[in-house]
Design a binder for these strands. Structure first.
Lengths: 334, 334
DNA sequence: ATACCAAATGTAACCGCTTACATTATCTAC
DNA sequence: GTAGATAATGTAAGCGGTTACATTTGGTAT
């Protein structure tokens, strides 16, 4: 039979209130009675009911984690697995449970607040003009995004995308490349646009050629990267280097380059973005811009909890630094 | 201000009980009053409190999902992402929330039952001799594993690993291979052993050579697959085909084979296992045994819910069929 | 119209905690 | 030893639902 706080109280010969105080580490309880109560808890095999506690305190002790729809192919991206590691780790530390939801068509975030299943929401991979976020903000619901969106008041943690791209493309320029292509994901996501802007900035600063025939859009999968690179290589004068704004696309790109009979990096240099694990196991290994994915995860949780507990004010915006990891695909001076 | 069932009751001029009945679709309520109540709910913007409901009904409406520790490198395997898709999808259908936990050192599953945060547990990637599972069974806690373990009473859904391996290696034999290697994960997981046994069975049935110098262990990562294949290729007489019992290892293997200056499939044929998305984007594309990962996910949730609701008896054991997907890495007749 | 019965609704207890407030025990100062 | 202050503990209400049981309503048979 399920033990309640009442049983423990009787066993320890104190009131329910005292047991509750011991459970919550209230300072106003004698060491002596604390021990008595602890002993009773041990003996009875009592576990406090999470639901009862949550009902009385009006806290769900829970964060809703919203991940992209399974339909969305990008969900398979190792980026998500890695950031999930950060989430779960930090959530445990902060004493919050993580509820997993998928961001399906017309999914109503607010619902989760209304029935008090969550204290806050953590959203991954949100489209830049997702209107739902505005509602969250307007309603003053605690939430955090991983990845910037257009809404100016949004809370988010992101990587320094523009800077990272700038660094990567600058590296290519310093190697002597004059004709540098760009292949990246949809501007539906701000980080993609920022990476493109970082790329563009370098070209402009060095008066290098840029334009439509040098850029190609993809959707962060091996498959789309493959297709996009194929198209890019159909051009009459192909680039000597391509900045591919995410690793999965970069890996797909490699296949297309090889199929065309070109060598990496001798004929075409490639730099990716993300530094997923796989980047070390391509042939050649992939030079890429590392995002601190795990830290983005822990940071997001930590800030969200502070928001929930009223220790921080909105809007909360954080950008973590990136780092260029040089491997085989970028080659040497030309 | 937060609306309760009491407000709705007053607005609709009925009792709390009636509102509750409407909320729970009780048949014993007039269509007329039902409408009256629904109208009041709409007008007041009322949402029933999940915690209050859970406390009274003594149901958490929640399944605990236990995934391998972040420390465990195999966690990045796309297998997990895919099965997660199945979990979330089916859980939503069944009306259960999914709580995410990481299986850290000494993590005590039972805790989650004791404080009633979950109604059941879904465990992924559990070690074959995990003692925690026995406790769950003994305590009659509803749980489900994805992947068999040694404990005979365990509930699980798995793929037909032995059969799948048997099919793959038979295919290699039919192509004319006589010297077939095996590269796979640790026997700490039953599925790895089963795949090996499937492999071995084929060799024995055809009186083919087998032994230590033809087999190599790895841990389901590109990196380990790479290292393992390197070692395998140090042998004086290398195999003409290798069955690599998971795709990530197979992808790592490919790199090692190429580095050695050997061609796939001309010099060495390769077959993987899993059919992760990436398998279509390797060079050459990877022949592999497809597991119905997504279906394993939905099935596991569905069965767990039936266990929770007392509609099925333990032990519950299900194996889903696999399918050989023939691509480039296996080559033709030799 | 009356008696009876089933269906619809209401009443109130209960789920297992927390916490404001009341009470009691303990200590200090005189 | 006593008054007063303070610390420790107890009492009871409340969190927001569900549900067994009681009551009322409405319909049917006489």
């Amino acid at each position: 039979m399920r033990k309640t706080i009442e049983h423990v109280a009787q066993l320890a010969e104190v009131s329910k209130a005292t047991v509750s105080r011991v459970l919550n580490n209230s300072p106003k309880v004698t060491e002596q009675t604390r021990e008595k109560v602890m002993k009773a808890i041990k003996e009875s095999g009592y576990y406090p009911s999470a639901m009862a506690r949550r009902l009385t305190t009006n806290k769900a002790e829970t964060i809703g984690l919203i991940i992209p729809s399974p339909q969305d192919k990008t969900f398979g991206n190792p980026f998500y697995t890695e950031i999930l590691r950060g989430f779960t780790h930090q959530a445990k530390i902060e004493g919050y449970d993580l509820l997993l939801f998928i961001n399906e068509h017309q999914f109503n975030y607010s619902q989760l607040f209304h029935d008090r299943r969550v204290d806050g929401l953590l959203l991954v991979g949100v489209n830049r003009n997702d209107k739902g976020i505005i509602q969250l903000s307007k309603n003053n619901f605690p939430y955090m995004l991983t990845g910037k969106i257009d809404y100016k008041e949004a809370n988010y943690v992101d990587a320094e995308n523009r800077k990272g791209a700038y660094q990567a493309v600058s590296y290519l320029v310093n190697l002597g490349h004059k004709r540098i292509g760009y292949l990246g994901g949809s501007f539906d996501f701000v980080f993609n646009q920022e990476r493109f802007e970082g790329y563009l900035q370098v070209l402009k600063e060095h008066n290098l050629e840029y334009g439509k025939e040098l850029t190609m859009e993809s959707i962060n999968t091996e498959e789309s990267g493959y297709e996009a690179m194929r198209k890019l290589l159909e051009s009459s004068s192909i680039p000597t280097a391509v900045f591919v704004a995410n690793d999965l696309d970069a890996i797909g790109s490699m296949k297309a380059v090889k199929e065309k009979g070109l060598r990496i990096p001798e004929d075409i240099s490639l730099i990716g973005f993300d530094d997923i694990q796989l980047a070390s196991y391509t042939e050649p290994t992939l030079t890429t811009v590392r995002q601190p994915i795990y830290e983005m995860g822990t940071t997001a949780i930590s800030l969200l909890v502070q928001l929930i507990e009223g220790k921080k004010e909105v809007p909360l915006k954080v950008e973590l630094p990136t780092q260029l990891i040089i491997r085989g695909s970028s080659g040497g001076k030309i």
